[in-house]
Lab assay of single mutants.
Amino acid sequence: NQESVVAAVLIPINTALTVGMMTTRVVSPTGAPAEDIPRLISMQVNQVVPMGTTLMPDMVKGYAP
């Protein structure tokens, strides 16, 4: 099972992602793949992402898996 990126903390809208904001988990439906964490760092979210929420590609500005 592939791990997806999950918010480790509450991420406010327009916040640039840091490694400490993200964790990985096997979830369904799958979100952004765990191996993309290095690409996701410094990208901004376009909505509030509550802690424990799977990071879906459409939540991150300019990100395409």
Rank of each mutant, 00 (worst) to 15 (best):
M21H: 08
A34I: 06
V19R: 15
D58E: 14
V6A: 03
K61Q: 11
P38N: 10
T24P: 08
A32W: 13
V19D: 08
M43Y: 02
V6E: 00
I13Q: 12
A34H: 04
P50Q: 11
E3L: 14
A16V: 13
A16E: 11
M51D: 06
Q47W: 09
T15N: 00
N1Y: 12
L40E: 00
L17S: 01
M59R: 00
K61E: 12
Q44W: 09
L17F: 06
E3F: 12
V27P: 04
M59C: 05
Q47D: 02
L40M: 03
L55C: 05
N14V: 07
V26W: 13
K61W: 12
I11T: 04
G31L: 03
L10K: 08
L40T: 03
V26T: 09
M43W: 06
V45P: 02
V5L: 00
D36I: 05
T53V: 11
Q2A: 12
D36P: 03
V9P: 04
Q44N: 04
A64S: 15
Q47E: 05
V9C: 13
V60Y: 05
L10S: 10
A16L: 13
V5C: 07
T24K: 13
G31M: 04
N14Q: 02
N14I: 08
T53Q: 11
N14A: 06
V60M: 01
V60D: 02
L17P: 00
M56W: 05
S28K: 12
V5Q: 03
P38W: 14
T24A: 14
P33M: 04
V27H: 04
A16C: 12
N14G: 12
M22C: 08
N1K: 12
T53H: 13
S28C: 13
L55S: 00
A8E: 03
N14W: 15
V48Y: 10
T18W: 09
N14C: 11
P12V: 09
R39T: 10
V9Q: 11
P33I: 06
T18F: 08
A64K: 15
G20E: 14
A64L: 14
A34S: 07
M21N: 07
M59W: 04
S42P: 03
P65Q: 12
S28V: 13
T24V: 11
T24R: 15
S42M: 10
I41S: 04
N1R: 11
R39Y: 11
P65G: 11
D58Y: 15
N46E: 01
A7W: 08
T53A: 15
E35I: 13
E35N: 12
E35R: 15
Y63H: 03
Q2R: 12
V26A: 10
V26C: 13
V6K: 04
P65L: 11
Y63E: 00
A7P: 01
G62E: 06
P33A: 05
D36S: 05
I41M: 06
D58I: 08
P12T: 09
T54A: 03
M51P: 10
L10P: 02
V6C: 08
M51E: 14
P33E: 04
G52N: 08
I11V: 03
V27L: 02
